[in-house]
Amino acid sequence: MAEIDRIIHAPARLRIMSALMALQPRSQLDFRTLGKTLDLTDGNLGAHLQTLEEAGYIKVEKSFVDRKPRTHLSATTKGRARFEDHVAALREICRV
């Protein structure tokens, strides 16, 4: 039986994971675009990303594009599996 994931369930983290799950596996989304899409401040977004990264649900990669630092984020295989489990658990609750 699927279970609600405590880390993903927090509203901001649920939205972050949803956005990253909209990408194809191994695709990465820019930090600034994610913040704008979710209407989250850099500080707030950063804090939630750290929690998700520590749980191994997302991967954070820093690089330089045109000499400017860019941060790209992607959901890991573990993160994707946990998210799908979480969604399955939500659907089960709706069916009960």
Partner: peptide, 16 residues
């Protein structure tokens, strides 16, 4: 929560 997930996924695809 499920509605929010659907909304964010659709919005992200459009933003991309």
């Amino acid at each position: 929560s499920l509605a929010e997930i659907d909304h964010i996924m659709a919005q992200t695809r459009k933003t991309i």
